[in-house]
């Protein structure tokens, strides 16, 4: 515990480009960028595959591959091959690892919508796209949000590891601390990342409460968790 007070009580850790606020901001910037890119790719694609049923195999294979791919290996390989210097090489693996959870859960959610419900929507005169956006997506929303939550947590975790290949952010405290055997910095960084991951978790719980229609929430939901 005195390691914690040593780390958080040190005023030097609270200012400058390698202080906690600056590192936190960096971490949030990379994570938000990677998360947004992944969501822009995976949500529409998952909706399309779930709605049309085409390309389902691709979705399942990508989910399994992402679960088995070692984060650190992918990170060092991509950055080694593309080259360091800019942020882009680090964003690539972050996005690659964030896409599958969103893709799979969006696909499962849209595909799992009760066919009677879709038929009723068609019967009311809605077209294909309207059925998807006004019926299937609201019903699938809990699973889509689950996918987004898992991806966000994955991104926060991977961005931490990415400090190893030179990315800034909270991972610096852990990686640099390990390199110089300054364990207060390691533990302090770990606590900060843990707090950030929990904040993301709770933020998504709150979004779920607000965004999901009460009628949908009343139904017992399925949980299709996929691992990080």
């Amino acid at each position: 515990m005195n390691w914690l007070s040593g780390f958080f009580g040190d005023p030097a850790n609270w200012s400058g480009p390698d202080g906690i606020p600056a590192r936190l901001l960096e971490h949030l910037e990379f994570s938000a960028a990677a998360f947004l890119i992944a969501a822009l790719i995976a949500v529409p694609l998952g909706m399309l595959v779930g709605h049309t049923g085409r390309g389902a195999l691709l979705v399942v294979v990508s989910a399994n591959a992402a679960r088995a791919l070692p984060t650190l290996g992918l990170l060092v390989l991509v950055v080694l091959l593309i080259g360091v210097g800019t942020v882009l090489p680090v964003l690539v693996p972050l996005v690659v690892l964030a896409v599958p959870p969103i893709l799979v859960n969006t696909y499962e959610g849209v595909r799992g919508v009760d066919p009677d419900l879709r038929d009723a929507a068609y019967g009311m005169g809605l077209r294909g796209r309207q059925v998807l956006l006004r019926t299937s997506v609201p019903v699938a929303l809990p699973l889509i949000l689950l996918g987004l939550r898992l991806a966000a947590i994955q991104v926060v975790a991977t961005a931490t590891v990415a400090a190893f290949v030179g990315l800034g952010g909270l991972g610096r405290f852990i990686i640099d601390g390990l390199a110089t055997k300054e364990y207060p910095s390691v533990i302090g960084g770990a606590v900060l990342v843990a707090a950030l991951a929990l904040a993301v978790q709770f933020a998504f719980t709150a979004i779920d409460r607000i965004a999901v229609s009460p009628g949908v929430r009343a139904r017992p939901g399925r949980d299709t968790e996929i691992a990080r």
Binding site: I153, A157, A190, V193, L198
Partner: peptide, 18 residues
Amino acid sequence: MNVTYSLPSLVLFSIFLS
């Protein structure tokens, strides 16, 4: 378990390191 699962593994490794 849900809370545990949301913690990055590197974080848990670092904490258990001590």
